[in-house]
């Protein structure tokens, strides 16, 4: 099971996680093209919550009890057994935003570039390390794989 853990005490609020998440979910995956050339910019699936000096990167925590999955009316949100993560299929999504209401962490965002669909962290399962973790300059986002989970928590 893949999890990203946010370390509030070293998050510096630079928002580079948001930027690289957007690049990772862009069409070209090139940072300059993703921001300057693509008409419909991708939605970053991580969001930095900030208040004064306190901040942390918030993305899907892949809950063991995924309310978003339970509440999804179209079957777009599903639990992927193979990766142990909650995934979202925009083809099936009807943009009813029920998942957004159900998510008690506020980790699901709206993608209204074309069809209205939900946007959530997919844990970059195709990458060795998720883009936000790889580019966090202060190690405030930590990737935890299954076997390490207990000791970290």
């Amino acid at each position: 099971m893949r999890r990203v853990i946010a370390k509030e005490e070293v998050c510096i609020g630079c928002r580079l996680c948001e930027i690289w998440c957007q690049v990772q979910h862009s069409d070209t995956k090139d940072i300059i093209k993703a921001f300057k050339k693509e008409d419909k910019q991708a939605v970053p699936r991580v969001h930095v919550e900030e208040e004064g000096a306190r901040s942390f990167g918030l993305q899907c925590r892949n809950c063991e009890e995924p309310y978003c999955v339970y509440s999804c009316i179209s079957g777009a949100m599903y639990y992927d057994e193979e990766t142990g993560t909650v995934q979202h299929d925009p083809e099936k999504c009807v943009g009813c935003w029920t998942c957004i209401m159900a998510c008690h962490r506020g980790a699901i965002l709206r993608d209204e570039r074309g069809e209205r669909v939900a946007a959530k962290c997919d844990m970059c399962t195709e990458l060795e390390v998720p883009a936000c973790v790889a580019h966090c300059p202060n190690e405030a986002l930590i990737l935890v794989e299954d076997d390490q989970e207990e000791e970290t928590e």
């Binding site: 510096i12 630079c14 928002r15 580079l16 930027i19 940072i31 993703a34 921001f35």
Partner: peptide, 13 residues
């Protein structure tokens, strides 16, 4: 300017 993506990291840092 050809490289600047207006991410404002410089502003925040």
């Amino acid at each position: 300017d050809e490289r600047c993506i207006r991410c404002e990291v410089c502003v925040r840092q």
